[in-house]
C-alpha cells in the first residue's frame, strides 16, 4: 500500500516532535534532580552583607540545596557575568542582593526567561514583574525613628552632614527621605553637606575628612549605613572631634552595636539580615516545591538601637 506524501511528512514531523519532547523531558528530569541554588550578593567587603549571604547559603543548605555564593563586588558587570554563569549552569533559584535597583532588572529578567526564579533580599529592584519576591527592610520608617532620635539628641538647632550610600540603590533614598521627613521640619537644623560615600567605610573616612576641613563646626553626621558610620567615627577621631560630633548609622552591624554601647556612635537601626536571608531561601524552597503565590514585596520591620536599649541587640538581630 502506498502512503500519501502528506501523511509521510506529518509522520516525520511527529517523530521529530516526539524526539524533542523526550530530550526536553530528560532535561527537566535532570533539572528536577539538580539542587543548585545561587546566592548573588552585592559585596562581601562589608560584614553585614557577609551575614546576609552566609545565612541565605546556610538556610538553603539546611533545606537540602547545594548553595553557592557569588560576590558581585559592587560591580554591575560582575553581577551580570554571575547571572550568565548561573543560567548556563542550570541553577534552580537565585537568592539575590542587587548592585543597582534599575540596572539589575535585566539580569533578573534573563533568569526569569530561563525559568530560574529570583528572590531579592534587602535591596529592591524597581520592577514589579521580574523577581518572584522581594524581602526588604522598612528603611523609611527606620530612618523616621532615627530622625526623631537625632532631633532629641542634637536639639532643634545645629549643623550636620549626611553621608549617602550608593545613589543607584533605593535603600539610600528610602533612608535619606525617612530621615529628612523628620529633620527638615526643624528649620534650625542645617545640613551643610550631603555626599555619597557609597556605603563604604574607607570612602566615608576620606569624604568626612574633606568635609570637616570646610565645616569644622558640625554637630552631627547622619550615615546611610554602619560601615560609613565607622568610617565617619574614624575621621572624627583623627580630627579630635570624637564624642563632640554625634554619629548616626543604619544596619545594626555588630561593631556599631558595640560602639553604641560604648557611646562612640549615638544610634543605629537594626535591620534583620538573617530574617531576610532565611525568608528568601524558604521562599525559593516553596517555589521549587510548586508554590507560585508570593507577595512581590514583603517589608521587614527594623528597630532603633540606642544606648538605652542596646543590651537587647547583638549578632545582627535581637538577643
Amino acid at each position: 500500500m502506498k502512503i500519501p506524501r502528506l501523511l509521510r511528512v506529518l509522520a516525520s514531523i511527529c517523530l521529530v516532535a516526539l524526539t524533542l519532547s523526550k530530550v526536553a523531558a530528560a532535561a527537566d528530569t535532570k533539572a528536577a534532580g539538580n539542587r543548585k541554588v545561587a546566592v548573588v550578593v552585592s559585596t562581601l567587603n562589608n560584614p553585614w552583607f557577609v551575614v546576609l549571604a552566609e545565612t541565605a547559603r546556610d538556610r538553603a543548605k539546611e533545606l537540602g540545596f547545594d548553595a553557592t555564593i557569588f560576590d558581585s563586588q559592587n560591580d554591575p558587570a560582575k553581577e551580570s557575568q554571575h547571572f550568565d554563569n548561573l543560567i548556563s549552569s542550570g541553577y534552580r533559584a537565585v537568592l539575590f542582593n542587587c548592585t543597582d535597583a534599575k540596572g539589575s532588572i535585566a539580569n533578573v529578567r534573563r533568569a526569569k526567561a530561563a525559568n530560574i526564579p529570583v528572590f531579592c533580599m534587602d535591596r529592591e529592584i524597581e520592577a514589579n514583574d521580574a523577581a518572584t519576591s522581594q524581602i526588604l527592610s522598612d528603611n523609611y520608617s527606620g530612618c523616621v525613628a532615627l530622625g526623631q532620635f537625632f532631633v532629641e539628641q542634637i536639639g532643634e538647632t545645629g549643623k550636620y552632614v549626611e553621608l549617602l550610600g550608593i545613589v543607584a540603590d533605593t535603600n539610600t533614598w528610602n533612608r535619606s527621605k525617612g530621615f529628612h521627613s523628620v529633620v527638615d521640619r526643624f528649620p534650625g537644623l542645617k545640613m551643610v553637606a550631603q555626599q555619597s560615600a557609597e556605603f563604604d567605610r574607607s570612602k566615608a573616612l576620606e569624604v568626612l575628612e574633606a568635609l570637616l576641613q570646610r565645616n569644622p563646626d558640625i554637630n552631627a553626621v547622619f550615615c546611610g549605613n554602619d560601615a560609613m558610620a565607622m568610617g565617619a567615627y574614624q575621621a572624627l577621631l583623627a580630627a579630635g572631634k570624637a564624642g563632640k560630633v554625634k554619629v548616626f548609622g543604619f544596619d545594626g552591624a555588630d561593631d556599631v552595636v558595640k560602639a553604641v554601647a560604648e557611646g562612640k556612635i549615638a544610634a543605629t537601626v537594626m535591620q534583620f539580615p538573617k530574617t531576610m536571608a532565611r525568608t528568601a531561601a524558604e521562599n525559593a524552597d516553596k517555589y521549587i516545591k510548586g508554590e507560585r503565590k508570593f507577595p512581590q514585596r514583603t517589608p521587614v520591620a527594623v528597630e532603633l538601637v540606642t544606648k538605652a536599649n542596646v543590651n537587647k541587640f547583638g549578632d545582627y538581630g535581637r538577643k
Binding site: N128, L136, D138, N139, S141, G147, Q148, N174, S181, P295
Partner: peptide
Amino acid sequence: FGNTVRDGSGLLDVNSFPGL
C-alpha cells in the same frame, strides 16, 4: 512622622503601589 497612619488600618498593601 512615619508609617503609622498608612499601615495602622491594615487596608493599604505595598504590592498595590509602584514601589516602596
